[in-house]
Amino acid sequence: MTFEPKIIAFLCNWCSYGAADMAGTSRLQYPPNVRIIRFMCSGRIDPNFVIEAFLRGADGVMMTGCHIGDCHYIDGNYKTVHRYEFLKDYLDTLGIGSERLTLAWCSAAEGAKFAQTVADFTEQIRRLGPSPFKERGQ
């Protein structure tokens, strides 16, 4: 059986969820491996959510939001960036690997970009194989 990655995507309500919506209404094909969780702002994505996603068996996690400067809460996504950078170090040290986490900006008009990001990330995770937590049979 080929490995089908399980990816959790945290989307912000205003831009990236709009982008996902756009991708859908535009009938763009993207891999079905991604499970979407909507937040009001990417700044709400607590690092704990990302960690818990990995601990509960996700192979990859996507954090997406509005472009810098476009945040509906002005600077919510600044925080996202700092947390993302911090989480990358955390995941590297823990041994999960920062390449299993990605940050992408998609405006509500960028349905195609969203679909492409998901496709690329899924491919990346497929290459990396299952999360090390999964291999212990959890």
Binding site: P47, I68, D75, Y78, K79, V81, H82, R83, E85, F86
Partner: peptide, 11 residues
């Protein structure tokens, strides 16, 4: 670092 909210350089 987890409390930072300043403008992120390079993004």
């Amino acid at each position: 670092p987890l409390s930072r909210g300043d403008f992120p350089e390079g993004y």
